[in-house]
Computed example of a mutant assay.
Amino acid sequence: MTQDFDLFRLSEEHEMLRDSVRALAEAKIAPHATEVDEESRFPQEALDALVGNDLHAVHVPEAYGGAGADALATVLVIEEVARVCASSSLIPAVNKLGSLPVILSGSEHLKKSCLPALAEGDAMFSYCLSEPDAGSDAGGMTTRAVRDGDHYVLNGVKRWITNAGVSEYYTVMAVTDPDARTRGISAFLVRKSDDGVSFGAPEKKLGIKGSPTREVYLDNVRIPADRLIGAEGTGFATAMQTLDHTRITIAAQALGIAQGALDYAKGYVRERKQFGKPIGDFQGVQFMLADMAMKLEAARQLTYSAAARSERAARGAQKQDLTFHGAAAKCYASDAAMEITTDAVQLLGGYGYTRDYPLERMMRDAKITQIYEGTNQVQRIVMARNLP
Rank of each mutant, 00 (worst) to 15 (best):
D343A: 13
V21N: 11
K205F: 00
M141A: 10
H32L: 12
D195F: 00
R147Q: 10
G200R: 05
D48W: 02
I103Q: 14
S186C: 02
A225Q: 14
A46V: 05
K28P: 12
K209Q: 13
R315G: 10
V36H: 10
S211V: 07
K273H: 11
E45K: 12
V190P: 08
L7Y: 13
H245L: 02
M338S: 13
L255I: 10
L17W: 05
G260S: 04
A328T: 04
A366Y: 00
Q253A: 14
G284F: 13
A63V: 03
H56A: 04
T171M: 04
E79M: 15
A69K: 05
A258N: 03
P92L: 02
L118C: 07
Q259W: 10
K28G: 09
P116K: 03
L72D: 09
E120F: 03
Y351T: 15
S130A: 15
A251Q: 03
L289T: 05
L90K: 12
E15L: 13
V102D: 06
R222Q: 10
A119P: 01
C331Q: 14
V190R: 06
E203Y: 08
D281K: 14
V157D: 09
G66H: 10
V221W: 06
D194R: 05
A366R: 00
Y127C: 03
A119G: 04
I250H: 00
T246R: 00
I381H: 10
D37P: 00
K96F: 13
P358V: 06
S310R: 08
V60L: 07
A86H: 15
V153L: 05
F42V: 11
P101F: 04
A261N: 07
R272C: 12
L24V: 01
A63M: 02
F199N: 03
G68M: 09
G374D: 01
Q286C: 06
G316L: 03
Q318D: 15
V75H: 09
G52T: 12
E45M: 08
R22Y: 02
C85D: 15
R380N: 10
D179Y: 01
L72T: 13
H14V: 06
D194N: 14
V77Y: 06
R41P: 11
R364Y: 06
G140E: 07
Y170L: 10
T142A: 09
D37T: 14
L100P: 00
R315W: 01
A384K: 14
D321V: 01
F42P: 10
D281W: 13
R227I: 01
V102T: 10
Q346D: 12
R300N: 09
F8H: 09
K295R: 15
G280S: 02
D122V: 12
K273F: 03
T234E: 15
A187W: 08
G68T: 08
Y127V: 01
P43F: 06
A49L: 05
Y170D: 04
S167I: 00
K28D: 15
H109R: 15
E62S: 12
L17Y: 04
A261I: 06
V51K: 11
